[in-house]
Nucleic acid binder design. Sequence first.
DNA 1: GATGAATGAGTATTCATTCAT
DNA 2: CATGAATGAATACTCATTCAT
Lengths: 212, 212, 212, 212
Amino acid sequence: MTANDEKLSRREQRREDRRDEIKAAGVHIFAKHGYHAAKVSQIVKEVGVAQGTFYLYFEGKEPLFGEILNDFLAMVVGTIADWEPSDLDTREALRGDLTRVGLMLTDVLTENPEHTQIFFREALTVSKEFKEMIREFYETLGAMLSSFNAILFDRGLIARRNNRVLAYMTIGMVERVIQEYVVHGVLDDIPAREVVENLVLLYLEGTAPPAE
Amino acid sequence: MTANDEKLSRREQRREDRRDEIKAAGVHIFAKHGYHAAKVSQIVKEVGVAQGTFYLYFEGKEPLFGEILNDFLAMVVGTIADWEPSDLDTREALRGDLTRVGLMLTDVLTENPEHTQIFFREALTVSKEFKEMIREFYETLGAMLSSFNAILFDRGLIARRNNRVLAYMTIGMVERVIQEYVVHGVLDDIPAREVVENLVLLYLEGTAPPAE
Amino acid sequence: MTANDEKLSRREQRREDRRDEIKAAGVHIFAKHGYHAAKVSQIVKEVGVAQGTFYLYFEGKEPLFGEILNDFLAMVVGTIADWEPSDLDTREALRGDLTRVGLMLTDVLTENPEHTQIFFREALTVSKEFKEMIREFYETLGAMLSSFNAILFDRGLIARRNNRVLAYMTIGMVERVIQEYVVHGVLDDIPAREVVENLVLLYLEGTAPPAE
Amino acid sequence: MTANDEKLSRREQRREDRRDEIKAAGVHIFAKHGYHAAKVSQIVKEVGVAQGTFYLYFEGKEPLFGEILNDFLAMVVGTIADWEPSDLDTREALRGDLTRVGLMLTDVLTENPEHTQIFFREALTVSKEFKEMIREFYETLGAMLSSFNAILFDRGLIARRNNRVLAYMTIGMVERVIQEYVVHGVLDDIPAREVVENLVLLYLEGTAPPAE
DNA sequence: GATGAATGAGTATTCATTCAT
DNA sequence: CATGAATGAATACTCATTCAT
């Protein structure tokens, strides 16, 4: 690596840092005031740079929001993708896996409450484009969980249900609990593990296959 | 009733009709474009009246939104309030009751998909006031369901759970399924009864008390 | 007078009464809020008639203001016109005359404080037309008083002065004292006669011809 | 002073210049059309900037008016404050002082006829706030002149009068003459000195103490 | 005459974005 | 790279006036 490369790289690093600062301020302001009430002037003021500087790092207010939204989705998807399923040959194994992934998800969202808030509160109202992106996210998630349920049923691990309805029920119970826990603090006197276990329990008991 | 009264009453009737027309247009435009992108000019254009006429019937754009929101909440609350619980002495009775109220709710929301969409998509982003109103709605609902769960547990109808978590899980599964069913039409190839029965089933099986 | 005439006349009377009611309300509202902040809706509300009724009696808001303004000017001009000057052959006679007309003016304005307030506060800002009307009023008054001063000087009753400046000084001292006395109540602990005598005294002593 | 400071200061200078340009245009438009008929669009058009630019320098139309009004009052008060009274031990000294301050006032107002016009014509009709500010100005002035008269009487320089009435008479004669002279040009064929001397003469002769 | 619902022209203000320095 | 002054499009709301009933 030449001195030049190093310098360039240092410059790039600074550029990245500055971008991150602005994005962090964006997260903060969007969470505090909502997308529509948030002003670019508030964001730059929080960072301590001039109005024009914002546009050196982001194309505009909406693109910034888009990145923040993508960061959130990437975090969620990444967490689920990190999940290395066990053999899933018994309901006990399933319980373990679900609890584990649930706790991982709880962790990452608890660490990013503002992202979580922005996602649930604002994402649908910014633009048609984002609305459709979110819709696609939900439908993908719904389809994945439907397939997952179908597999579990095939393996005799869960009872016969309408797997699509079951998928969306699952999504719903998880997302509402997350909102109350992470964003509104309504359930935050309860240990995360207990919350997750209640979720897993309802799912598992609610789908217990009939005893032979 | 004198002729004068009649005239007055006819006038009042026309006034109500006009109000309703404008409100209906508001529902339509808000659902189509979202609160922030909706323009008063679009609403009056849809009704076919002048801009000023709008302000004869509503104080402004936000107050109109507020009424629409209240109408929705009143519909939901009214539906639940209409529920005359049976004795609730057996799980079978419970299943019947839950199915019945679930179907009633499904009915009223299916008939008002735009209100439903507005509630889930926009209500939180219009103003602090509405955000707090919605929050209160959720917390009241959460508290009611928590108590309900506690009663059911006392009667031996459901197993020991964290009743608050259970309450919010229930809210979540219902609201997500409603959104998919009513607003996005993702589940609308499935009969309403089946959807509701799946919801009730998950709740009931998921909370089945241990056999003696 | 036939019965028909009488009926007509009664109808005309009613019409006049209604007009006067509206005008009185106009005076009140204009004085309270000023011309620009005054709303026709406030005026009709005070009278207890419908919005449209206003336009059966007056051409509009500005014409109503015009009438009110003219009423005020007519009162002032009428008061001065009522003055039957004495011979004005001595300064004592002059003092008597000025005191008399001053008291008459004070009387009529004190009885119509809202008109007075409207004239001094609003008249110039309503329209070009009224501004010019007021200007003409002042210039006519100035010219009259200038001539009057010239006559008094010719008769040896007052000293040599710039008669036009003297005229406007006189107008100014009178109108400012009137405003404080009638509109703002700043001097209203002082008997009207004393106020007028102070005015006359300043004018007379301030223009006393040099002793021979 | 570093280059940076200089740059900053130059920027600040430009900012002030721009502000002054806009304010000057405001004075012009307000004087020409009156506050209520004046449009922000006219003001920015006169300066040759965009509509939004106006709001970089002033909070709005009314705040701009407020500054203009304050500038006027500051000029008047400043002129009077600049007056360094002589010993005021003889009526001749008093005459000199009054003439001097009168000329100074005439000067400053003649140089700012639009401000003068705005003050006398519009200031009372813009808002309650300004109305009260003006009222306070008059009452302060009235109180000051009353005290001044009391002092002069104590020193035997003027006769016994109602000092408050005398104060307001003085204010009135001065302000009316100023309006005619500065705003309407009615007296502007007369040298300023002569106008002022007539004012002083009426005051002094009108309050001459009785010869012993 | 009286009503009051309907009209629609008119305007101050905001704020994301640009660009000369 | 950074600045921040300038831009100007975009919109909710008011209220004097009209006119069908």
